[in-house]
Amino acid sequence: MADRDQGCACGLPESYDVCCGPFHRGEKQAPTAERLMRSRYSAFAVGDAGYLVTTWHPRTRPKRLRLDPAQEWTRLDVLGHTGGSLLENEGTVEFRAHYRYRGQEDSLHENSRFVREAGRWLYLDALA
């Protein structure tokens, strides 16, 4: 990940400590599905598996999550979204997450589903 004083790994211009850091530290909850998705991408970039687990819906959450330190997340492109606003309880976010693994560049394209329960957004799964 880039210097924490530069733009956040999630692609927004604020520094990590102002942007996704408060979500990762539990100081704030992501207000929309897109912000949750961005903060989850950032958690991959900084290696915060705990945040990924706590923001994963219990119904679809894996029993274990181990991040590979050889995988370097390099850029996030948000391609679109449906729902997921402050006034909704469901939403999708389509994105492309770029990474480098053992010197090879690649990307992951996903359309993720999110639900809000008890006022908190959670990652549910990826649409097929």
Rank of each mutant, 00 (worst) to 15 (best):
M1R: 12
M1P: 13
M1Q: 15
D3K: 03
R4E: 12
D5V: 14
D5I: 13
Q6R: 15
G7P: 11
C8T: 09
C10L: 06
C10T: 00
G11L: 01
P13N: 12
P13Q: 12
E14P: 06
E14V: 04
S15W: 04
V18E: 10
V18H: 08
V18A: 11
C19N: 09
C19Y: 06
G21L: 07
G21F: 05
F23P: 05
F23I: 09
R25Q: 14
G26F: 10
G26S: 09
G26Q: 04
E27L: 15
Q29S: 10
A30M: 07
A30N: 10
T32F: 03
T32I: 05
A33P: 01
R35Y: 05
L36G: 11
R38I: 02
S39V: 02
R40D: 01
Y41W: 05
Y41A: 01
S42A: 09
A43Q: 05
F44I: 03
F44D: 04
V46A: 07
G47C: 02
D48M: 03
D48I: 02
D48L: 06
D48E: 14
A49I: 04
A49Q: 07
A49V: 04
Y51M: 01
L52S: 00
L52M: 02
L52D: 00
L52Y: 02
V53N: 09
T54F: 10
T55D: 01
T55M: 02
W56S: 15
W56H: 15
P58W: 08
P58H: 13
R61Q: 08
R61E: 00
P62A: 03
R64D: 13
R64S: 14
L65N: 10
L67H: 07
L67Q: 05
L67V: 09
L67M: 07
D68E: 07
P69F: 04
A70W: 08
W73K: 08
T74Q: 04
V78W: 05
L79P: 01
L79H: 02
G80E: 02
T82D: 06
G83K: 00
G84T: 09
G84Y: 11
G84K: 09
S85V: 07
E88V: 05
N89W: 13
N89E: 15
G91D: 00
T92E: 13
T92P: 11
V93D: 01
E94D: 10
F95S: 07
A97R: 02
H98P: 03
H98Y: 06
Y99M: 11
Y99D: 04
Y99P: 01
R100P: 04
E105I: 14
E105D: 15
E105L: 14
D106N: 15
L108P: 05
L108Q: 12
H109M: 08
N111K: 14
S112H: 09
S112E: 10
R113F: 03
R113C: 04
R116A: 09
E117N: 13
R120Y: 08
W121K: 06
L122K: 12
L122D: 10
L122V: 12
L122P: 10
Y123I: 03
L124A: 08
D125A: 09
D125W: 00
A126N: 11
A126S: 11
A126L: 03
L127D: 02
